[in-house]
Design a protein around this nucleic acid. Structure first.
Lengths: 231, 231
DNA sequence: AATTTCACCGATAGTACTATCGGTGAAAAT
DNA sequence: ATTTTCACCGATAGTACTATCGGTGAAATT
């Protein structure tokens, strides 16, 4: 019945089982729960056979980070291409925030792992986490540039970076909330992110336009000092 | 020269040294680097003497979380009282965002530890992290209520929660950025947060006022569909 | 058919940590 | 002055994991 696998095919299958098992354990128990014993058992081989496939756990995690990173980037690219092909005009702004949100939710285990590793000095996946965060930020900055928001001077560039970092953090938080079932509607999450960025980008916009910065009436502003922001 | 310490005083001093040492190691090496060996050595006692003061590492972390939580809450209370006493009118809105930012930066190690533990299923400090995040969110929701933003129906209440969660995440991200030296000016961080929330709160405001929701002119909106948000 | 290769196995030495034990000396109580 | 208490010590048994070793049988090569 089962096709007799060649030796290299069988080895590759085992290797993939090891990577898959490691990812599952990483997600469920965290990096602390990871060991060659558990990963090998979950993959159905002896603990010592782990070393046939990887030099040590660090190498497995390096490979896992590389593959996951590639998967994430591909996922993001696909989503962006889809967004370009169906512009929808009205939705294009919201799509900017929906795409990273969807990318994050498509790989929940990677999101959780990345959030943990990001601030853990002992994590072997820290580089992966930092790199992923950087990719998100750059993606976002590019999208904002496409929407016409530019940063000319030093100050605005720093502000744009702060906004991107804040929005990225909010995106992750809402994605987690969505995965936990608290925010079932992903469109609503995207709306919140859109609204968050809308206010912040006004800080940048006034450098380019002319008669900007005026607020519409009917809103009780916190004080008589314009929009309450220092410059 | 040195006053001869009573036995209980000496014991208490040692206990505090253990807690302090644990906090430092936790911050520098993460929870994975924590062990009775290291903590005891850093506190200047034998490893076995650790158990004179704590049943096990879990109990030490419980005590540490309780004390740190109390410290954080006290820090937050002080900051809010200070803000109330010097209202400053124009600054009151920004203060709303500056206070948690300052509270986070006043205890960098607690911020980092909390961010790590938050999503780590194996962390013994997870309850502490979740509780701290909840306290931040509630503090923020209360401040928003004080500024006149109310959530009447189910939908608005959920949106307020999402905004608070997003702003909280952004606050932590900017606080980390500030501690890492990338954003030296804490006021600027507060400005960004103020601006972020300003856009989002507009989603809520229209339920109370009458002729709200109109945008001021001069801004190139993404499309002809109003502000591009679904309702 | 004979030989070589190699993925996998069990056994095990080495490492790091936890938690308990009896012993000790100085503080505290009598 | 004598006894008791107890914070701290060193030693050690027990646990979990890492990484290496020689052995084995089936696939691959000759």
């Amino acid at each position: 019945m089962t096709t007799p696998l060649s030796r290299s095919e069988a080895k590759d299958r085992t290797r993939r089982r090891l990577l898959k098992a490691a990812l599952t354990i990483l997600d469920q128990e965290g990096e602390a729960g990871l060991s060659t014993v558990k990963v090998a058992r979950a993959a159905g081989i002896a603990q010592s056979s782990f070393y046939v496939h990887f030099k040590d756990m660090q190498e497995l995690l390096r490979v896992l980070a590389e593959e996951s990173g590639a998967r994430l980037r591909a996922s993001m690219r696909r989503a962006r291409r889809r967004a370009r092909e169906a512009p929808g005009d009205l939705d294009s702004h919201r799509e900017t925030f929906r795409i990273p949100l969807e990318a994050a939710c498509r790989h929940p285990e990677l999101l959780r792992i990345q959030l943990r590793a990001r601030h853990d000095p002992s994590s072997l996946l820290r580089d992966f986490a930092v790199e992923t965060a950087r990719a998100y930020r750059e993606h976002h900055a590019a999208d904002l540039a496409a929407l016409g928001y530019t940063a000319d001077d030093e100050r605005d560039r720093r502000r744009l970076e702060m906004i991107a970092e804040g929005i990225n953090a909010a995106t992750n938080a809402l994605a987690i909330g969505h995965l936990e079932g608290r925010y079932p509607d992903l469109d609503e999450c995207a709306d919140i992110l859109t609204a968050l960025s809308r206010g912040a980008l006004r800080l940048l916009r006034h450098t380019s336009g002319g008669a900007a910065q005026r607020e519409s009436g009917g809103h009780p502003e916190p004080g008589p000092g314009g929009d309450g922001l220092r410059r």
